[in-house]
Design a protein around this nucleic acid. Structure first.
Lengths: 351, 351
DNA sequence: CCTCGGTTTGCATCCGAATGCAATACTGCC
DNA sequence: GGCAGTATTGCATTCGGATGCAAACCGAGG
């Protein structure tokens, strides 16, 4: 009787309602649990049952409702991916890679794009409400936010940022090491005066790179350093170059830019606005190894991040922790690869 | 009694279970419906009730479960966004814009990234299972797939592709018009022989552009046309240039590339491998108006897509149709903007 | 033919919030 | 003070599928 009632309110004016497992069960003359079992992996169901159910399901166009399933299983099979500053040419690649890695594990990606890395507040609330099974973030969270996420027992992996003093998992490219390589090479090649075009102040990666460069320069005994900062964009790179020159009266021997795009901006400014030859008059290096850095007109000397390995790690670390929440946090740092482009005179080129 | 049972099985070994509206209700001494109402927009609840519930909710760290809500309201508040070929430098921008537009309407984005535009099969199944409220796709679907989606009554908006003979909504940049502009200008500037570097054969946009260019060329009476095709990438652009030259024995007067990145590849190949001056010896034009097209070393003549307006349209068209499923399909085409870079000699520059 | 071990299947219940309806509380007004 | 009218609140049910448990079934061996 109660079952009959269920079919009664199918009075969708224009077209049939979406088929449910009950509808399929009825048509196939079996129980709803049977339908449920047929659509699961390791559930027990005879071949005959499978056939009947599948036939009925096909004629009704039935598809299991992932929302309902998520409610009962306490698994949404969705992970949140948080990105910011997509203008940074580098993240799109990361994003697609991540999505593909996750989809290999039958996990969907709920995307959160932040205008600025600071806008994390509301986003966290959203992620929690949607009961995502895990989070990969390429934006920094505050300690309280991290605590909130931990309390909700949602596995969390930071991408290219590692909060200080926090017990969290992260995957990153070793920015400091990369900057050290660049600095070593530049200093050994005879560059004495340096300009740094840092990233925006709210970028964790930018800060890591800037500090890495500054520390390396200090260790090498370099003191003539001028710093300006941009927003990772091309235009900003051009402007920063001008600022640098103005600030110190003349162009430095070398410029260390916070990413490749700004490096490209610097190169164009140096050539167009100051008639400088790169790398003869000035060396300019970037970071990331994005596509445009390989364009012949720039051929930027840079450190390429191992995006594939990093995204694979992030995805698998997260999935491991979703399946086994007891796993302790883990931090993985990958070395980048120094790419000796022709935008800088480097030491070992003559080796 | 049944309520008491509910609190009993809270035996989470390590830490409390996630708070539900029942927990909050109990602590606040009110009914579950009251809690539900407090967390809704237009529901009736006294101020006193609001305070009590909110206090209880805060101490428990309660957040409404969007999954459960979706089950009962038949609204997931999620839309699927399908993209392919993210290698195309242009889509990341689209993606972020879309995500932000949707989040303004409190709609989340479930991301599906296709390796190739053809891999749509499984993705559609996923979207339907997750009961997304709508779909924006930057990949082409087959007529059967479209029918499946229509049967499920899920609003669908195509981005930059308009299936032939299908009653669907779409937002696109008028590729044909843009190509016509480019062709007109090039022909009027005296270019006689043309090379076309088309996009991959499974790209709907690529085909539209290629056809647009060919039609325009035919109308202008141009017959010396050589076509090759690439995958939208930089390297492919370089290779295509070589192929073009080889195929016809010498470089054409002008090259029309399927996108800016390939145009850049062509420019580099022309300069580096053939010692040609751009635009003195050869004109090269692209399409999209991506960031790198503006780099000083290339300054590509191109047609810029009005991404902001297009994404806004796509988002609002979709949301309108989610809220009012009876709305009939609508196709919007936006004109791009011709950008007269220095990679081509154009007619009207002397005007 | 009956019994035993192993599969299949169905029953009943649960996940967490939304909502129609009825009961109740509160308001203003005569 | 009493009453109509509105604003709150609670009750019970619903969304669609998963799952523990017990009943039913199957084939093989005695």
């Amino acid at each position: 009787m109660s079952k009959a009632a269920k079919t009664d309110n199918n009075k969708d004016p224009k077209g049939r309602k979406r088929a449910t497992s009950y509808d399929v069960a009825e048509l196939a003359g079996v129980s709803q649990s049977a339908v449920s079992r047929v659509f699961q992996d390791g559930a027990s169901a005879s071949q005959a049952m499978r056939n009947r159910v599948m036939t009925a399901a096909d004629t009704l166009g039935y598809r299991p409702n992932a929302i309902a399933r998520g409610l009962i299983t306490q698994r949404s099979n969705m992970v949140a991916v948080v990105i910011s500053k997509l203008t940074n040419l580098y993240y799109p690649e990361v994003l697609v890679q991540l999505t593909q890695r996750f989809s290999e594990h039958d996990v969907r990606v709920l995307l959160f794009a932040l205008e600025h890395e600071g806008d994390t507040g509301t986003v966290i609330e959203q992620m929690l409400q949607y009961r995502v099974d895990g989070i990969v973030t390429a934006a920094m969270f505050t300690p309280e936010q991290i605590k909130t996420i931990n309390n909700a027992r949602i596995p969390l992996v930071f991408y290219n940022r590692t909060p200080r003093d926090q017990l969290v998992s992260s995957v990153r490219c070793d920015q400091e090491e990369g900057e050290r390589w660049l600095v070593d090479e530049l200093v050994n090649a005879g560059h004495k005066t340096f300009g740094i075009v840092a990233g925006p102040p709210d970028s964790a990666v930018g800060i890591a790179r800037e500090m890495g460069a500054l520390n390396a320069l200090a260790e090498m005994g370099v003191t003539d350093i001028t710093t300006v900062s941009g927003d990772y964009g091309y235009e900003t790179g051009r402007e920063c170059f001008a600022q640098l020159v103005q600030k110190r009266g003349s162009p430095p021997d070398a410029i260390i830019a916070g990413n490749d795009v700004m490096a490209i901006g610097c190169i164009d400014a140096a050539r167009e606005n100051y008639g400088l030859k790169v790398p003869d008059d000035i060396s300019i290096v970037g970071f990331d190894g994005v596509g445009p850095a390989r364009y012949a007109a720039y051929d930027v000397t840079t450190v390429r991040q191992p995006v594939l390995r990093m995204t694979q790690s992030a995805a698998s670390m997260l999935i491991e922790r979703i399946e086994n929440p007891e796993l302790s946090p883990e931090k993985r740092a990958f070395s980048g690869r120094l790419i000796r482009g022709s935008s800088a005179r480097l030491h070992s080129e003559d080796a």
